[in-house]
Amino acid sequence: MPEAEEPMQYEFRVRGPVPENAAETLPELDSVMLADKTVFYGTVIDEAQLFGLLARFRMPGLLVTQMRPLPY
């Protein structure tokens, strides 16, 4: 039986400011605007959630330019 995955903190960088209605489609993530990008961050519990988040970024047309796990 495979081991359960440990939740991890992730950061997603999106080019430009993100409209509030687009950010609301990702309620489990916090966000902050930095210069020419918006940074989303939060806990991702498993690979299925990670891929689901990436798909939800694409739905309103947001381009993830960088994604990385963060140390706890």
Rank of each mutant, 00 (worst) to 15 (best):
F57N: 01
T25F: 00
Q66G: 08
E6Y: 02
T25V: 12
R56P: 03
F57W: 00
A55F: 10
F40S: 02
G42Y: 09
A4D: 10
E24R: 14
M8S: 06
D36A: 13
Q9L: 11
R13P: 02
Y41P: 03
P60D: 02
Y72C: 09
F57D: 02
G61P: 01
G16W: 05
Y72P: 06
D36E: 14
P69T: 10
S31C: 13
V44S: 05
P60E: 04
P17E: 11
R56V: 06
E3F: 12
L53H: 04
Q9C: 08
P27V: 07
M8N: 00
R15Q: 14
F51K: 15
E11H: 01
L63A: 13
P2R: 15
T25G: 04
M59P: 05
E47R: 11
L50D: 04
P2F: 11
F57I: 04
Q49H: 12
E20K: 10
P7C: 06
E28A: 11
L54E: 14
G42K: 04
P19G: 09
R68D: 00
F51C: 13
V64A: 00
S31G: 12
P17W: 07
V44Y: 02
V32K: 14
E47W: 07
R15G: 08
M59C: 10
M33W: 13
D30R: 14
L63W: 09
M67W: 04
D46Y: 07
V64K: 02
Q66F: 05
M33F: 14
V39W: 00
A55R: 14
E5K: 03
Y41H: 08
L29F: 09
P60Y: 02
E6A: 09
P19S: 10
G61V: 00
E6D: 06
D30T: 15
T38P: 03
T65H: 04
P17R: 09
R15M: 10
L53N: 00
P27A: 09
D36N: 14
M1D: 13
L62C: 03
A35E: 15
A55Q: 15
G61E: 05
T38S: 05
V39T: 08
R68S: 01
E20W: 11
F40V: 03
M1L: 13
A48F: 13
D46Q: 07
V44T: 01
R15N: 10
L62N: 03
P17N: 10
L70H: 07
A55E: 15
T25I: 07
D36V: 11
A22S: 07
E11V: 02
P71R: 07
V18N: 03
P60R: 04
L26I: 08
E6G: 05
E20P: 04
